[in-house]
């Protein structure tokens, strides 16, 4: 990303692109990733509710998956999933 010159800065440094932080992919922080087992999933969505990143999304079939661009691998979804449908596995 090219850095702006002082002349190009918005007046008062107002940021007028809401949600532009999503340019930054926090997924690189991850050391573990959540894997959903759809056969165990009851589609309750608790993983979606408790995700601090807001990166768990529901698929068309009603199951859930995380956007790996942002998932930091905290493991809350796996820990809170009471049907135990999510497993954390080491990255790489």
């Amino acid at each position: 990303m090219t850095l702006k010159t002082w002349r190009e800065l918005p007046i008062g440094c107002v940021v007028s692109e809401p949600g532009s932080a999503s340019e930054y992919h926090t997924g690189s922080w991850r050391s573990q990733r959540p894997i959903w087992n759809d056969t165990k999933c009851i589609k309750c969505g608790i993983c979606y509710v408790f995700c601090p990143e807001g990166c768990v999304q529901q698929t068309e079939e009603g199951f859930f998956k995380a956007n790996m661009d942002y998932c930091k691998g905290c493991g809350i979804c796996a820990h809170e999933c009471w049907p135990r449908a999510i497993k954390m596995v080491e990255e790489g």
């Binding site: 932080a21 926090t26 991850r30 601090p52 807001g54 990166c55 661009d69 905290c74």
Partner: peptide, 10 residues
Amino acid sequence: SSGHRACSGC
């Protein structure tokens, strides 16, 4: 939005 820099599991 996602992309915020909170610690993992915040």
